[in-house]
Design a protein around this nucleic acid. Structure first.
Lengths: 255, 255
DNA sequence: AGCATATTTTGGTATATACCAGATGGTTTT
DNA sequence: AAAACCATCTGGTATATACCAAAATATGCT
């Protein structure tokens, strides 16, 4: 007979707790990175089992309002980082547009041989030597996304001896006279993989957004492939699309 | 003493099950919408508790490989639907580009008064009459995203009496001589809300991708605001970015 | 102060059990 | 053939309990 009258079709208990937890965050009563109550704390406070408390906190996470760190606690998410994909092609845009300084840590940098997919994207033969490097991007020490880029080694000799903790676009401009002109971009949602989670300080299966880009020079030749995986709750992409006005002949309807 | 020797730091049990469940899906052994084993089924088969089985299946969901329907089961996800945001601004692109026919169901259509945000985006005064309509998009009966659009009522008189189960862009072109020229697009990840879940046939908190767009005419005047919420595992957005080559003066570095 | 050592707290994993309500499918009745 | 009924299966919710290992904190010692 526990709470008999109201057990009709009311929202589940954990969802009510979610509402209580959400309110102070949305009201701004809690600053970014402030600690949320622990699972056991919520369980005590609302007199539910720990698993129910956990489900409530996980829902808050799913809404992007908080993130969890293993064996540390849950914390209020900072603001999203806006990335204008049509203004600039690399991270300089992110860093400038949002007024946020991005810290870059080089995770790995090595020479590899192009597999089928990379070879095709970069218009080179399979087995061609490529430079590949993986970097972790943070803002105020808070991990945001991981990026791996590949370029043709012969085109950018000695690239890996440069300081990779800067905008790649700029680096290639200043040292190799190669300018980014256009880029094809692909955005999709996927879960963060196990190895990526470790770098991002997340638990596996955290929802993320993958961004792939092929960067081309003035001649339309691709010279750089990039693949980013963002913490989903921190990503925000903007773009400006222009419907081709010079080419209305393609319209086919008879009206 | 249950499985003593191997309890060092190996991956958790549910993750091993995930690997087993994932394999046949990735190999294509299971067609789209094929049923996965039930939670109780997995629990029996792998000799784990139902909650552990559930966690494994939820992980498969998080990876976008399957979706669940309440009290029906879990099923293999179909292919993603590609949406080129830079080619065209409305759904005609989706429908054509992917070669998939989209079924459109009108959920709601009514006249409202512009709130502060809508008024600002559409460059009209607050309280101005708008037409707002919500449509559900499916492919082969499978819900993919919900879209709500708002237009200025006085600009498109009688709009709601037209058949809204078609491309809005086309409708406005043919009947009101208004052509989409450019659009600002915003993409971000967020959980699917409760009311949206019902329409999409999902459980709340399903990870989704929100796409907002402001569509402008040749004169740069905004005439339509659209907001879509996609099932995250089904969305894939592409874009072509072109770095402005006529305007290199903005570069500020001293090199 | 600086260091090493316990203790507590935390999220993650896992089991066992229980009930609910909608969906499903087979059976019976009309 | 259509409608009504019913047992079964399903995912969703919820509790109670237990252990692990890493992180944070407190404690004691030098």
């Amino acid at each position: 007979m526990t709470s008999a009258q109201s057990t009709k079709t009311r929202s589940p208990r954990f969802r009510q707790i979610v509402d209580c937890l959400r309110a102070p965050i949305l009201e701004g009563a809690l600053p970014a990175h402030a600690a949320l109550p622990s699972e056991r704390g919520v369980a005590r406070e609302y007199n539910v089992s720990r698993m129910t408390a956990r489900r409530a906190l996980e829902a808050i996470e799913a809404e992007g309002l908080a993130y969890s760190e293993d064996r540390r606690g849950r914390f209020v998410s900072p603001q999203r980082l806006k990335y204008d994909v049509s203004k600039m092609i690399s991270l300089a845009a992110v860093s400038q547009a949002s007024g946020t300084k991005l810290e870059i840590e080089v995770i790995e940098a090595k020479e590899i041989k192009a597999d089928a997919q990379l070879a095709k994207s970069l218009s080179v033969n399979m087995g061609e030597a490529l430079y590949g490097y993986t970097r972790l991007f943070r803002s105020n020490g808070h991990a945001i996304f991981i990026e791996t880029e590949w370029v043709v080694a012969s085109q950018f000799p000695d690239l890996l001896n440069h300081d990779l903790r800067q905008s790649t676009t700029r680096l290639l401009e200043q040292n190799y006279n190669t300018y980014a002109h256009s880029g094809d971009i692909l955005i999709r949602m996927r879960a963060v993989l196990a190895d990526e989670s470790k770098l991002l300080g997340l638990t596996p299966n955290h929802p993320g957004i993958e961004l792939e880009q092929v960067i081309c020079d003035d001649a339309g030749r691709p010279f750089c492939i990039g693949r980013q995986i963002w913490r989903g709750e921190l990503a925000e992409f903007s773009a400006r699309a222009i419907v081709n006005p010079q080419e209305p002949g393609r319209m086919k309807h008879s009206g």
